[in-house]
Design a protein around this nucleic acid. Structure first.
Lengths: 138, 138
DNA sequence: GTAACTGCAAAATATTTGCATCCTT
DNA sequence: AAGGATGCAAATATTTTGCAGTTAC
């Protein structure tokens, strides 16, 4: 477990520090996506807010987590599946946001359909968020 | 034109004020979606920031505009097609965000496909944002 | 005239930056 | 030892709230 954490960080050539291990553990233990505020709240002992900002930013840059935009002005972060290269996330899955419990999760099994868009437009990346009721709440 | 503006507001039982007309005009004249900052910048004379916050909030509640979440923590606002009832947007179209010019627009012609999700999950609303190169930039 | 809208001031929150110190390699 | 990561302080930016004055109906 410990080893796993360190491996993830080392694979991205990041130094292994307490803060990073702690935050990464939160993600591994959480089924859903986490916001900055979630992390601040859930981390038993707390880190400086600034450290959380910087760690999340680093994780996003290195492809350890990806962001999920929400319409209430908060950004959620979720673990990437293996294979996200640096600065190149291929979020080929959809996100599900439960309107009942508020959890956001990645539906990694569901992949994104081809969407035909008007001539002249070029698709690079498709993001899909579905809102509804999740398995636990239904 | 003037009449049109007023009609939109009156139809939602909002009083017709200068600020609202001005902001609504910005949306009508803009092909793409606007952020709070865009509005603040583009409005020749300026309104109080607070007025913009409140106006946008009112417009969203009344179904005049809808929000488009972006992953850089800004919310974009775009005009709803006629037919969005109060508090009930049916954003049955997709959003396109150009990575070259930065514009975000609604592709009203393209509607959202059926997406099969795992058993136990219930879909209420599907949001799709496609990033790529728009017609003007390609 | 009354209710609703606006602007200003100020509070509360969130995010970014600089720098000295500490930890990882 | 050197470079990177962290914590603290402080600067910025963003959003919310209260209230008094103004405007729309």
């Amino acid at each position: 477990m410990q080893t796993n954490l360190e491996k993830i960080l080392r694979d991205k050539s990041l130094s292994v520090t307490d803060g990073r291990k702690k935050i990464l553990t939160l993600f591994l233990n959480s089924k859903g996506a986490l916001s900055h505020a979630d992390i601040e709240r859930r981390s038993g002992e707390h880190f400086d807010r600034v450290t959380i900002y910087r760690t999340l930013q680093t994780f996003v840059e290195k492809g350890i987590v990806h962001t999920i935009p929400t319409d209430d002005n908060t950004i959620m972060y979720a673990l990437c599946k293996d294979g996200c290269a640096e600065n190149h996330h291929h979020d080929d899955h959809i996100h599900f946001m439960c309107t009942s419990c508020g959890k956001t999760e990645c539906l990694n099994e569901v992949h994104i359909p081809e969407i035909r868009i008007p001539a002249g437009y070029l698709t690079k990346e498709t993001q899909i968020v579905i809102k509804g009721i999740c398995k636990e709440c239904s």
